[in-house]
Design a protein around this nucleic acid. Sequence first.
DNA 1: TTGTAAGCGTTATCAG
DNA 2: CTGATAACGCTTACAA
Lengths: 324, 324
Amino acid sequence: MANIREIARLAGVSVSTVSRVLNNHPYVRSDKRDTVLKTMERLDYRPNINAVHLSRGRTNMIGVVLPTINHPYFSELLEGIAEEAMKHNIQLVLFQTGYHEEKEFEALQQLRGQLIDGVIFASRAMAFDSLLNYSDDGPIVLCEDSDQEEFPSISIKHVEAFNIGLDYLISKGHEKIGICLGRLEGTNSQKRKDAYENKMKSIQMKLRSEWIIGQCLMIQDGKQVIDQFMKMEEKPTAFIVGNDQVTAGMVTEAKNYGLDIPGDLALLSFDNHPISEILRITTIDIPTKHLGISAFKALLKRTEEKGYAQKFILPYKLIERDTV
Amino acid sequence: MANIREIARLAGVSVSTVSRVLNNHPYVRSDKRDTVLKTMERLDYRPNINAVHLSRGRTNMIGVVLPTINHPYFSELLEGIAEEAMKHNIQLVLFQTGYHEEKEFEALQQLRGQLIDGVIFASRAMAFDSLLNYSDDGPIVLCEDSDQEEFPSISIKHVEAFNIGLDYLISKGHEKIGICLGRLEGTNSQKRKDAYENKMKSIQMKLRSEWIIGQCLMIQDGKQVIDQFMKMEEKPTAFIVGNDQVTAGMVTEAKNYGLDIPGDLALLSFDNHPISEILRITTIDIPTKHLGISAFKALLKRTEEKGYAQKFILPYKLIERDTV
DNA sequence: TTGTAAGCGTTATCAG
DNA sequence: CTGATAACGCTTACAA
């Protein structure tokens, strides 16, 4: 591949002039600029991006850490990030972790290695303290309802939203309420679980471990929950469910058993993804895509302003439909 | 940030020795290796990846071109690519195009600029001839049912699968068959449309433009199709639909109108994504994730073997459920 | 087994 | 406005 030196030689100018043309600097006589441009065109020249990156010390790429791409929550979030990044001419490098910490560290090492200018954690499995070690290596943004004040974070108020959901169920006469969450280890799930346990205590309901179900992420998991439900001696009259996919699985599997929703079992869910409208699932809307957009904006801000660590809270909204 | 020279100085060795340690070369005396390693540890050293890339002339990153991330078809495909890439320690750079050609060119320019070692086109909007210009810049793989012999390609036999679907509908007594496709300009859609038109001719059915519907990609589009359907004077008795999302929207909107599926309208779809099982949609399974896995493998093969341009055909499978 | 030094292809400083 | 030339941080002959 042709390089800048060759272009310079053929155009009869110095490499600096070529570089200036490349970067739209002023102070290049227009006839020189033209010959340079023509020479580039002729050789179908394209600057070596790695060299540019090395020289500049920046890459205009950021990393996105997420457990899995193929889940509506994360792909919507990712889409938000991608759209906003595109506006600013920033490229995305993907780190699909499958919730493995090592993979998350990889992203951070690439940050330190200056392959990426920043990192957005769409989800985090690693300890917060470990994260702190990379604080000086570049901007980091967290998509979680976080109390820390070191990094910018974007989220909804999970506890509050969960309480709204629980109150709604209670207002409809439910007391025997079960809960379906994703990875119980996750920060968001923890918040939600705490909210649930506190609320149950406040209405004098004993916690039943059988009614607290984890690892609910996909449609298929919802089916299994209903299978479990059918076998329970003491059944809850309602479930609050961490995401619409799972609820979708529950609704349809419930129908297979001839259950009446919400008569035999009420379901309140989170996300308001398209499937919930289709299945008329009562759900709490989370502005997932905007979470992504805001995350990117926060990263940008943090890039410009070293200590910037604002906590962004986005609004949620209860959407009443037919499963409660 | 510390660099290799500083490590060398502090460890009392030369930069080449440090480099050798970094790259697990043999021929480094183990006590030297140890001090180097310790020094790195102490300074929390991480090599500058851009410098490595520039020096090596390779980046171990590949580009993935797709129109949108937030659609089950593409996010499943992407997941396949991502999983396989991870096994080979290859990073993914995303190019979300929204079907815009310029964005696709961007990926190719980054290929020429050696930021990425190769490109997978999960979908393509640009002309094939334009693509040919980049053939020498690095391996390119296409996810399409393609007749060209220049690049490796991965797909199912769209025409054949479509014919199977149409024959199945016909065998169930349908002749008045409509069709819902995605972007009519896309290569896959073109193939499918051709198959449809030929089949209709072969059973002496006149083509009605009203029954050929494009821009069907999401759940919401399916709703609109049914709204259109309700207004048709002459109604088809069946639709063959390009993807499950759209069918899902159709099924549920049809219920709102009190239509009987398949009595009033039969629906045959493609993909076999989780939602189709939930809604008991009869569909033709496409191994989307494997498409992604194979695409990555083909890219790797093409990297090693210049002219490699095999066409991979993956199997599809009719899944009989309740909408036909 | 080790070190020296020449790349890799840009950008940026500084002198003209 | 233009051109030398020194970075940027690593890899890799080549020589020892």
